[in-house]
Amino acid sequence: MIPRWPEGVGQVILPTVDSTSLEAARQAPHIAGPTWFLGLEQTAAKGRRGRAWSNPAGNFAASLVYRPGGAIAHRALRSFVASLALQDALIAATGRTEGLRLKWPNDVLLNGGKLAGILLESGPSETLIIGIGVNLRAAPTQAEVETGAVAPVSLLSETGTDITPEAFLDLLAPAFAAVEAQFLTYGFDAVRTRWLANAAKLGEPIHARTVTETHHGTFETVDAEGQLVLRTAAGQRMISAGDVFF
């Protein structure tokens, strides 16, 4: 059963767009409420800090733009809200929970491979843009991703589920609205607890690479600010920005 589209939330489907997040930023001053921009084709898709994001036809690329207000540090916790919502939508699409794990702060893994990426932008006038890409039909080749990164996978190859981007948005938008409501009513702790229950490599050794250094340690937890807590030989270390490697 397809859940109801959340009340008051807009939807714009673009046959082709440079990037859904760029379009969301351009439209941000004019929106009347939270709005999803779905791009069936992206000609200039971008990952974190200008990295390439391959977006073959049939894959999902959408950005939600809204004005959640609140302090910037609080707004950034939507990273966890978005990854949980995406996981819920994937469970709804496939009817299965096994194999789905979350990698700090917001990657969704399937059978150990990278299925989706999320990038948020907090902009002027308390605007937040949440860009979500999911390899529904095709995954980029290993050559297209960074050395050492988790190998990409697609939903189709891993589960046999073939779903269109439009149908997937019909699952994701209500899922996001539900987790967002939980976040607003019960706070980050409720979201964090659920996120940790679905985390990959909790209690296991991982690497975290920041701009300047790489830390090796045991993935202890995610703290109340959303930071990755690593237990390293030199003591506990909190990481707020960086990439995690297994």
């Binding site: 974190r48 910037i72 540090a73 707004r75 950034a76 916790l77 939507r78 990273s79 966890f80 702060p105 917001n106 999320i118 990038l119 948020l120 932008e121 907090s122 902009g123 002027p124 006038s125 959303g226 930071q227 707020s240 920005a241």
Partner: peptide, 18 residues
């Protein structure tokens, strides 16, 4: 006023600092 001065990244959120 409101012009972006720089970005501070945290939790894969690019926070524009106005």
């Amino acid at each position: 006023e409101g012009q972006t001065l720089l970005i501070v990244e945290a939790m894969k959120t690019m926070n524009q600092i106005p």
